[in-house]
Simulated scan of single mutants.
Amino acid sequence: MRTANQLLAVDLRAWTPEDWSAAATVATAIFTIATIGIALAAALYAKQQVDLARELREEQAQPFVVVDFADNPVMRQGIDFVVENMGQTLARNVKISVDPPFATTFDEYGYPLKDAPLITDGIPSLPPRKRITALFDGAPERREAGLPMKYIATVSFEDSRGRPQEPLTYILDLSIRYNLLSPTEYGLSDAAEALRDISATLKETRSELRGEFRRRRSEGERRDATATRDSGSSDSGGTAAS
């Protein structure tokens, strides 16, 4: 049996010009195939990069509608419901569904958020960076009322060309807002309350001052009247003695 070395042994000195030409042709073909393979791989990689860049640009150019709860800037411990388009293009036909339906302590005053057009009808168009805010509830009052603390909100919308976008789902959890340490921040409502207290104090002070002035004036008038009577009595006594 022939060994591997014998099978691989090649006597290059015995090659004819035709053998060398055939070997060169085979080597050229192999090199060409390898070059084509590399070129195809490079082209495929470039196409993937182009597709990825295009998808990234399209995603960056899409509307991105977010719903969440936020602190009310005026009412201390007030909670806002916020809808905002954080994308770079217009969002159309924005619809918001909430499970379970919103319930707040403000409902009894005739302003239930679940029946507001923002929820029932949606938003026809929401420009980039447009923010819509609705006063939702007060944190202490809500906790005392035992209302739900967690909602699941689903937002569906279309892009600027009217193409439906993938619906976005958000878990809105109010319970994370409780039992947290935070510095006290005073807003416009606190300033207004302080001004009302100052006004009431000033009214009370003015009333007390008026009362004190009237009391002192009355005492002065009584003293003057007493002095006048005493003076008249003295004059009458002196005339009789003469």
Rank of each mutant, 00 (worst) to 15 (best):
T184E: 14
A139T: 02
T28K: 13
D80W: 03
T205D: 08
M1V: 09
G146R: 03
I198M: 03
A39T: 06
P112N: 04
S97Y: 06
A46H: 07
R177H: 15
P112T: 01
N93F: 05
R196E: 10
N72Y: 12
A241Y: 05
D11K: 02
L12T: 10
P63Y: 09
V65H: 07
S21W: 02
Y109D: 12
T133M: 10
P127M: 03
P63N: 05
W15S: 04
A61C: 01
E212L: 14
M149P: 00
R223G: 00
K47P: 00
T169P: 07
D159Y: 08
A23T: 01
A41G: 02
A191C: 00
A29T: 07
R142A: 06
S231W: 06
R129V: 04
T154N: 09
A41Y: 12
P167C: 13
E166N: 14
R214W: 14
E108W: 02
Y45P: 00
A134T: 04
D173C: 11
A225S: 09
Y186L: 15
S234C: 02
D197T: 09
L147E: 02
L181E: 15
A134L: 12
R13W: 03
E58M: 13
S175R: 15
R131A: 00
D159V: 03
R216C: 04
I33S: 02
S236N: 10
R214H: 14
R177N: 14
L52D: 12
I171T: 15
L180C: 09
I152S: 08
L195A: 10
A34T: 07
K150D: 04
L147I: 06
S175W: 14
E158C: 09
R229M: 03
Y186W: 13
Y178D: 13
T228S: 15
S189H: 12
L8S: 08
V155M: 01
P124M: 05
D230C: 05
P17A: 12
D80L: 11
E108F: 04
V98L: 01
Q77H: 14
